[in-house]
Design a protein around this nucleic acid. Structure first.
Lengths: 93, 93
DNA sequence: CGGGCTTACGGTGTGCGTAAATATC
DNA sequence: GATATTTACGCACACCGTAAGCCCG
């Protein structure tokens, strides 16, 4: 599992459609479909139902979405913590 | 930033020494030193002080350690959530 | 010398994008 | 035919491991 896969998953879940998700992520559709599939394979369960209209979350996907957002948000906080800490040690140069 | 970098960072912080961390991670030292450096570069601040005895956490590194562990723990919970959800949908085959 | 971190370098693998295939309405 | 996902394929980038270099007690 990669952080890119988590971001991809969240955006695809929000857009419900690979095309819009791809534009928002500045990537083409093939990487998206591949990474989502790889994520599902690794987790051992499908997260989306593929319909002719797009991708809709399955129950497992809905549960994973909450946690995926949580992970990404904590990661942002981790980055912020270092920024703060180094702002203290290395003031305005 | 990658999940591997987070894991590497946590173990190096715990071992205080690249050699022991490498053994624990089943990887050789060069990838470790490279990934730690890449992480520091991306965050824009050093996390460790390199001493002749090993690597000791700097203040920024100590703050980051807490958050890195948090991210990895949340990731485990995300995996667990999918396992539970699919155990419900797909009972004992 | 011995222990530790780093750099060079060669080879493998991952991952992208373009293009083509498939399916549904 | 339009919109959607997926597969094929070629190429570039990233990453690892071995080997060598460097520094300090």
């Amino acid at each position: 599992m990669s952080l890119a896969q988590l971001e991809y998953f969240v955006v695809v879940a929000e857009e419900g459609n690979l095309g819009r998700a791809a534009k928002r992520l500045h990537v083409s559709q093939p990487p998206l479909t591949r990474q989502i599939r790889a994520l599902e394979d690794e987790l051992g369960a499908p997260l989306f139902a593929r319909t002719p209209r797009g991708m809709t979350l399955l129950p497992a996907g809905r549960r994973f979405l909450t946690h995926a957002r949580d992970v990404l948000e904590r990661l942002d906080r981790a980055r912020g913590a270092v920024r703060e800490a180094s702002d203290i040690d290395e003031p305005t140069s």
